[in-house]
Write a protein that binds this DNA or RNA. Structure first.
Lengths: 205, 205
DNA sequence: CAGTGAACTGTACTTTGGTGCAATTGCTTG
DNA sequence: CAAGCAATTGCACCAAAGTACAGTTCACTG
């Protein structure tokens, strides 16, 4: 997988080079010139006071291209803004090489990565501010009609999983997943998994 | 590093055994008997409605001992409570072995681990509370990539329609609907109509 | 005019999803 | 204990979804 290091001054830190030796270093103004559709990860350094949305519009990313923000001064707001701008991760500019490699691993596999201290901040503020649940979802009502297992399967379907994935996740056969799903469709009066997804996610009756 | 699997019933899932074959399985009531100072990771399964604080007080952990919560029904509140109770990670009870190994790796190195979907929930709620908008590309951004006809088909799919229904609606062949959909999947990097629905409706990715 | 791209369609194929019928296990409750 | 329900799985079958390859038409543009 290709890695691009994007910096205002095109200055690569030693830790970056150690973590990802074969990364391509770019200045921001060279970014437009890269019209490649090649899948890979853009590591974008954010200096003091900058925000991602302004210098790396999310439409600049093709399918299969990911964005990780390296923040000089990481904090709650930077992380939120980065994630909202389509980044798959946000960590400190001066993170150790092992950490950067870890981030790459997680992000490549479709995960989100947030540094430990930042995560604690996020969790902390969420806990403090949350107090109670916001959405009295309609999903609660229909999930209540289902058995425990049916409910698990239904939620996984609602998240976009295939029968094969659900089977692997729950360590059961694909046939069993189908059995549970048929029961769910019957109980909720639905036609297929797409309608189930809409129901669980509160997008329809 | 030692691993302890702690469960109310001392039932080990196959995925756990595959991920960490040499873990020691414990019932919760056997926990007190373990007065070891040995460094390691406690994997504590949380069943429905349970909270960590009640069954695994943080003072039970010695220095060098870490706690990871395996939640049967992971959600925002469970994660918040787990992290607040001193856990270093929280993921789904039925996570795949590769995921569990990934978690172990991160946690052993002093990191915090939260599953991708949970993290998105956390970030989402934080963003909402901070007045930001996470799904900035819910409909418009990704629909902008599509042609007029592709966009129509995509919206109908997002509403739960089948190919046959879409064909009837637009007075074209079912084959043409499939052609448009394949183009949409290609452009947006999606796998099937369910993922498209989630994307259009701003429920995911 | 030549080239391009969107829209449209066909044949044929593979994969995934969903159902019907049947059977086993284990736990719970009258 | 018997009855019932939840969970599990197999086999077979059909329908729906999705892909590969190929082709036409039409409008627009350099």
């Amino acid at each position: 997988m290709q890695h691009w290091m994007v910096d205002r001054e095109a200055i690569a830190l030693p830790s970056w080079q150690e973590a990802i030796p074969n990364a391509i270093l770019l200045r921001r103004d060279q970014l437009a010139a890269i019209s490649s559709e090649e899948p890979g990860i853009f590591w974008c350094r954010l200096r003091h006071g900058e925000i991602v949305g302004a210098i790396f519009p999310r439409k600049a990313l093709s399918a299969g291209q990911l964005l990780v923000v390296l923040a000089d001064e990481p904090n709650e707001l930077v992380v939120s803004e980065a994630l909202a701008s389509g980044a798959s991760g946000c960590c400190n500019t001066h993170s150790a090489p092992e950490v950067l490699r870890q981030v790459a691993l997680v992000v490549e596999n479709g995960g989100l990565w947030i540094g430990q201290s930042l995560l604690r901040q996020l969790v902390g503020s969420t806990s403090r501010l949350l107090g109670m649940r916001l959405p009295a979802r309609s999903s609660e009502d229909c999930l209540a009609l289902l058995s425990e297992r049916e409910s698990q399967v239904a939620r996984l379907v609602a998240g976009g999983a295939s029968n094969k994935e659900i089977a692997a996740q729950l360590s059961i056969t694909e046939r069993t997943v189908k059995a549970h799903l048929s029961a769910v469709f019957e109980k909720l009066g639905l036609r297929d998994r797409l309608q189930l997804s809409l129901k669980i996610n509160g997008m329809s009756i």
